[in-house]
Design a protein around this nucleic acid. Sequence first.
DNA 1: TCGATTCCCGTATACCCTACGGAAATAACC
DNA 2: GGTTATTTCCGTAGGGTATACGGGAATCGA
Lengths: 266, 266
Amino acid sequence: MTHGTLCTVTVRHSGGGQPERTLALLWRNTRQQVRRSAGRRPSLDVDDVVRTGIQLADERGLDAASMGGVAKALGVGTMTLYTYVPSKEELLDLMVDEVLAERQLPGPGEPRPADWREQVELYSEQTRAMFQRHPWLARVSTVRPPVGPGMLAGREYLLATLLPLNLSPRDTNTAALAITTYVDSAAGLEAENLLVERATGQSNEAWWYERNDLWETYFDVERHPAMTAIWHANGYQDSVAEAAADTYRYGLDRLLDGIQAQAETL
Amino acid sequence: MTHGTLCTVTVRHSGGGQPERTLALLWRNTRQQVRRSAGRRPSLDVDDVVRTGIQLADERGLDAASMGGVAKALGVGTMTLYTYVPSKEELLDLMVDEVLAERQLPGPGEPRPADWREQVELYSEQTRAMFQRHPWLARVSTVRPPVGPGMLAGREYLLATLLPLNLSPRDTNTAALAITTYVDSAAGLEAENLLVERATGQSNEAWWYERNDLWETYFDVERHPAMTAIWHANGYQDSVAEAAADTYRYGLDRLLDGIQAQAETL
DNA sequence: TCGATTCCCGTATACCCTACGGAAATAACC
DNA sequence: GGTTATTTCCGTAGGGTATACGGGAATCGA
């Protein structure tokens, strides 16, 4: 491999048959452990493993957070990790919920912005910052997510934000899902752009420039009049990063406009 | 591995340094080939490889579309594929653009629905159906996408749809990006739910049922009043599939409402 | 001191992608 | 027809991944 970078992404279909163990790990900080009596003392702890995985993924991409990589960073044998974490799937679950919990969202009873849109804004900004800190999140599937404290806190906050709109309970839930779908996806795209630039060492602009042949050799103006019109009207952003940021803002604003309009006709 | 399934997903950061070759492959059907003079006759053809990759991914998941798997399905040695396709990255690019091109969207001058919202609807339904046919698409990164005929046709159609709204050129483009972001993400989530059910052999409802401990042991009603309220008001859908479908519809409708409102105030 | 218990981890298996280089087939030319 | 250039075919090997297995090492209670 010369320039291209290959990322292998592990997708959690979590549990592997022992959901109780996974839940206990996810919620490990809400119950205190029973000190076991006999046996060798552990040299690590689950949080060490999870933290190291996150750090490696942040610095060198999700690939670096392999079982071997994490073990080496911790100075232990690869198989040692399996005494702390049942599998790579679970480790990824734990990493995800950990960073979800990093978002600073007010809990029930705590002070928050007055306007519901500003509250959603807070959610969206915290989530966006999370993706910027941990761009590998964009590569992790969100179906059957880790149902840990971080995920539940996010859902709770967003639902609480929407309750005052007095939509039907069903619509309130659906609106929250629509918002998270959009925010996660747009923020993930934005972060992924950064990640790919760092991982390949090539700017997005250089990538497009390499593909100049497209416009000169293959692009047919007759078949793409709208693209051509937008192009000539200078409708395309100068950089991919700018386009991603604009899209994020614009789409979220329009989505919230739509939800607001629906709430006001009730 | 007992129950859990691990998917390794290859993410294209395409090109690997030879963008001309990639473009030539993506647009292979728009220029006719020059018949080479000497040398052994090929027993396959790029389309055979791409089609087989798509078929395997459809039937048995993206994992099955490995170089070895595709080669075996074609009855050739693994390394033979490399005479048709420079790498796995490129193969995935070709698979993606192929299925993007499957969408039946009217080109310039061809008849289409009168209302712009119905036109967007057509785009969204075609895209959604595409994700249902090829759920592995949800696992493929869309940054630095394959700029082939399928992708360009989709962008052209959507932009043409939005032009009559008379937004600024910049906003027209941004609105199109916001729509594709939402549609791809929501449709991808929906398809992925199906995929995971098929891959694990476990329904989403069974998955949640396995996690009953969450509510009984870990869930704190005090810290999650909004979730609890929605729950008691029967706000949660009965099935994950239903929730995904509702979210898709609701979010797209509100997003289009927002765009329409903006267009009408001009 | 002697289990019992727990942690540590080397080895082996089964995948993955792909660089390399030689064998086989074909066409053009002499 | 023989030679040569060109292209396809693909076995082997190397380096990556996750993890099942089983034995060795450490620690506590009795």
